[in-house]
Amino acid sequence: MNRNLFSILAIFSMALFVFVSCSDDDDFPAPVISDLEIGYDNSKVGYRGTDLHIDAEIVAEGRIDRIVLEIHHEGDHGHKSGQHDDHEWEFEYTWTEFSGLKNAKFHKHIDIPLDAELGDYHFHFKVIDMQGKVTEIETEFEVKNPENTNAPVITVTSAPSDGQVFHMGESITIAGTVTHEMALGGMYIGLVRADQNLEDADVNSSNTITLLHTHDYDSPTSHAFEATIVVGAEHDNNITPKPIDGDIAWQDAEYYILVKSRDAFGGPFGFSERYYIDIHMH
């Protein structure tokens, strides 16, 4: 009898030990996220056309199952219809590469589109462990245009010779490339009458004859161009061709061709040199 009782107590004690051990194993604290950095030096700023630096330390006693990041524009918080403005940027991704780890250094770079809407964004960073426990950090960061970008580089590969004479019906042509380190914006090539005395920055489609005006490029960072206009043409090559009359009407005069371009972020213009020619209408 005593032997049987001893056996029963031993089995009961072992079962209780296993139950307590399993319960202890399941009773891990939720994951801990520390030292979260958004943007370099935790500036909480990202720039269009670049990447967003994200860094965090993670400790999960219950072992990491997955890490989830969600980003959306502040104006889209709680938006459920699925209808978004063309330039609203959203990001959602789940990483499983850290699965099974208790400690992880999270370091990623997320591309911000060139046309991402400017302004404040919500940032949701979640760590889920293998027990289903979730730790989430919600914060905000701002998307801005890049600062201190360089002007586009304009390289002219073919142009009229200095002082070349063009007569009625002859074609004036210029060709070359324009490049930028991040993204090109607008580009304009104007035929300017020298006696207009315009500063290069003031040359535009309203006050000169347009050879080329575009915002469409071979790639975001480079474009090969060729622009031609015939002396005496009634309309120029503006995006919506305009009549060549009034203050910009053809004249017997000295002209020059100017190429100008700026980046997609409203930075400084780049300018070509002036290519001077003479136009004789008769």
Results as ranks from 00 to 15, higher is better:
residue 69 L to Q: 05
residue 105 K to I: 12
residue 50 T to P: 05
residue 224 A to G: 03
residue 29 P to L: 08
residue 259 V to T: 14
residue 145 N to Q: 15
residue 137 I to W: 06
residue 141 F to I: 08
residue 147 E to S: 15
residue 74 E to C: 03
residue 243 P to I: 07
residue 177 T to R: 15
residue 60 A to D: 03
residue 66 R to A: 05
residue 236 D to A: 06
residue 53 H to R: 05
residue 176 G to K: 10
residue 146 P to A: 02
residue 99 S to W: 00
residue 239 I to P: 09
residue 173 T to G: 10
residue 227 A to V: 04
residue 217 Y to T: 01
residue 228 T to K: 14
residue 113 P to G: 10
residue 150 N to I: 01
residue 265 F to M: 09
residue 129 D to H: 03
residue 21 S to V: 11
residue 1 M to Q: 11
residue 72 H to Q: 09
residue 247 D to Q: 02
residue 209 I to S: 01
residue 259 V to E: 04
residue 20 V to A: 15
residue 118 L to S: 02
residue 200 D to C: 14
residue 276 Y to P: 00
residue 76 D to L: 12
residue 118 L to C: 13
residue 121 Y to G: 09
residue 167 H to T: 13
residue 137 I to H: 12
residue 210 T to N: 09
residue 127 V to P: 04
residue 186 G to Y: 03
residue 238 N to A: 10
residue 160 P to K: 00
residue 53 H to N: 07
residue 124 H to G: 06
residue 228 T to L: 10
residue 156 V to L: 08
residue 181 E to D: 13
residue 2 N to Y: 00
residue 170 E to V: 08
residue 162 D to E: 14
residue 278 D to F: 01
residue 9 L to I: 13
residue 149 T to E: 03
residue 2 N to W: 01
residue 47 Y to N: 11
residue 133 K to Y: 14
residue 116 A to I: 01
residue 16 L to V: 04
residue 30 A to C: 10
residue 128 I to H: 02
residue 223 H to T: 06
residue 48 R to D: 14
residue 4 N to K: 12
residue 185 G to I: 02
residue 237 N to S: 13
residue 260 K to D: 10
residue 115 D to T: 14
residue 15 A to K: 03
residue 183 A to C: 13
residue 246 G to H: 04
residue 67 I to P: 04
residue 91 F to M: 11
residue 97 E to V: 14
residue 250 W to L: 05
